[in-house]
């Protein structure tokens, strides 16, 4: 009875906030360090991969608002990218804008990378908030061995 009670996961709002601030940090904070760093690698790989492919233009809160809702789940890093897009690219001269704005498949792919990374991080935020306490499971297994 006491064991089944201890396997129940409690809600962790602090871990969820940390998971949004930096992907994977919520899991690191609740003791699932290796999992957390792997999640961080996966989400940041998608985010910076998207920026590498499509450039800063693929994160645009004003022109691609629906996409940005998904991208915002990546955390503050998405808002920083949007800030650089609005303050540097959108205010630049036309020649620079034409050179730095992504078009066609490259724009779609870059946008998709960051949006899917954001939606994936949303799942990880929910897991950090109310997912199973895997750290204690491992500890119990080790103790029983």
């Amino acid at each position: 009875m006491s064991q089944s009670k201890s396997t129940q996961s409690s809600l962790r709002p602090g871990a969820a906030v940390l998971a949004w601030i930096l992907p994977g940090l919520g899991h690191v904070a609740i003791g699932q360090t290796r999992r957390g760093f792997l999640m961080m690698f996966g989400i940041l790989f998608l985010f910076f991969g998207g920026l590498l492919i499509g450039g800063i233009d693929v994160v645009d809160m004003k022109q691609d608002r629906l996409w940005f809702i998904a991208q915002a789940c990546n955390g503050p890093v998405a808002f920083i990218a949007d800030y650089f897009n609005q303050s540097m690219l959108k205010t630049a001269d036309l020649a620079t804008q034409a050179r730095m704005t992504s078009l066609g498949n490259i724009n779609s792919t870059g946008t998709l990378y960051i949006a899917l990374g954001g939606l994936m991080n949303l799942i990880l935020i929910l897991d950090a908030f109310g997912g199973p306490d895997r750290g204690s499971e491992h500890r119990r297994r080790r103790e029983s061995d």
Partner: peptide, 17 residues
């Protein structure tokens, strides 16, 4: 070709959970 790194990134994050 960029589909492969996209699915890799998703798999890394998903399988970690």
């Amino acid at each position: 070709v960029l589909l492969v790194p996209l699915t890799f990134g998703i798999a890394v994050a998903y399988k970690a959970m």
